[in-house]
Design a protein around this nucleic acid. Structure first.
Lengths: 257, 257
DNA sequence: ATAGAGTATTACGTTACGTTAGAGTCAATA
DNA sequence: TATTGACTCTAACGTAACGTAATACTCTAT
């Protein structure tokens, strides 16, 4: 099932060096390394690679891509949907360029006039709203950034933050036996949501949902969170899902029994 | 009418540094330089820049682009038409990628199966027939036999050689409609003969004749040479035959009408 | 057991600019 | 007229994402 470099390279159409490189910079680490040092890539590695190549095609740097796919907020499905949007934008851009070429040809034939702005339409649109969206969505939100934020704060401020963080988690840990939909849990989850928005960059509801998913999908998070109490990660992710659903279905008028 | 760097940069959406760079490498030299050393770009410069950006968008390197737009064979309208074709191919590629994303999303939802090949469709098509066509049409090609020789030379020497080589072939390609005996063709063939003798092992006239025959008998040569222009191999081999005959029959007294 | 195809690491090369740094230029204004 | 602020220049080092050897180990098939 596992594949060696050459196989992968030929399958996806990149060079072996590229795979080595991605490994070197920690962008795509093969799931396994044999005793003799051979890289073995898994199915999951291929999926990640697919993501990487999509983002690359859309003009992101490897560093950005690394941040994106390592981000606590990263959600594969969401990424795919955004990529789809971006590709449609790209197609529009290509259409614009074709149009510009057609105009230029006509212009050369003396059929029409062209302004200088017109002749660069499509070429200069240096990437659109969705790229922005993606950067906002995952780019800024890396762990490094949180750390950086912490660095810029005084000891007291840090402690304060850390205390409030702790409080919320401890509170939730106490509520582990309750259902994710319960009033108390939901109230605390709201505190968590507000806390994040207050202290870090804006979390959209989508992002918040994605974060919750991460808590059960990314082992690093699960482990960390479950230190507050066995099963807390699971509870939180479920509660966060309920929370986002309720919010989306219109303010807070809905029942959370 | 003439524009300074910043104006151009803002109009077309590239950095000032990019314009400096293009000037440095001789890709886009501003039409005029003021006494104080300011670059002034003309209308024509803008047109060239448009071409450059189109080719860049289509994945050509600056070196390739330079060769293309400096080539004696270069024709702006022809280029635009080819670029149009390439853009349409690119749109197809984008469509394919969108399709792949849709499939992937469905796949994740468990609705459909996907092969590994499928999941990389659109991403890996490393650029199509038209790129090939463009490279054949204007670009240079690799001559493996010569590479060994080139290895022993410095980079500058290599480039110099390659440029002269290119010049000769391009010149001949322009003369394709003339007869092999014509003055111009024969003069250029002499340049070719001298060039070979100067830079590679001594070509006796017999050897030169043999080389000419090779151009039509060995498909690899024919293909390579015809990249400069359809039928060039045939013309050259005929012209080389005429050349050797003339040389052997004593100096240059014979007619070459 | 030996060749041939594949793989690894190391390290320098390359492309297309980005990014200062230091200094001159130009037009409007005080 | 002097000054200021936006603009320009060259020079030179920095960076990203690999390419391209060079050298050495590994695996498999004969």
């Amino acid at each position: 099932m596992d594949m060696k470099v050459k196989e992968v390279a030929e399958l996806v159409g990149v060079s072996i060096r590229t795979l080595h490189h991605y490994d070197q910079i920690g962008l795509l680490t093969p799931k396994e390394i044999t005793d003799s040092g051979y890289r073995l890539y898994s199915e999951e590695n291929l999926e990640t690679l697919q993501q990487i190549l999509f983002f690359k095609e859309l003009g992101f740097t490897l560093k950005e891509i690394k941040k994106i796919i390592n981000s606590p907020l990263f959600n594969r499905q969401e990424a795919l949907i955004l990529q789809r949007k971006m590709l449609i934008e790209k197609r529009k851009k290509v259409d614009k360029m074709i149009e510009t070429i057609d105009k230029t040809i006509k212009h050369m034939a003396g059929e029409i006039q062209m302004t200088n702005e017109e002749r660069f339409e499509g070429i200069n649109v240096g990437f659109n709203q969705f790229e922005e969206e993606a950067r906002r969505r995952w780019g800024n939100q890396s762990i490094d950034e949180i750390n950086a934020k912490l660095k810029g704060m005084s000891k007291d401020e840090q402690n304060d933050l850390s205390d409030r963080w702790d409080m919320i988690f401890n509170k939730l840990a106490c509520l582990r036996n309750q259902s994710p939909e319960s009033q108390e849990v939901q109230a605390t989850i709201k505190q968590w949501y507000d806390f994040l928005n207050e202290n870090f960059s804006k979390y959209s509801l989508d992002a918040f949902y994605g974060l919750g998913q991460l808590y059960i999908n990314d082992e690093r998070f699960t482990k960390n969170i479950d230190q507050y109490g066995e099963g807390l990660a699971k509870l939180m992710s479920e509660a966060m899902e309920v929370f986002t659903n309720n919010q989306i279905r219109g303010g807070s008028n809905e029942n959370n029994n």
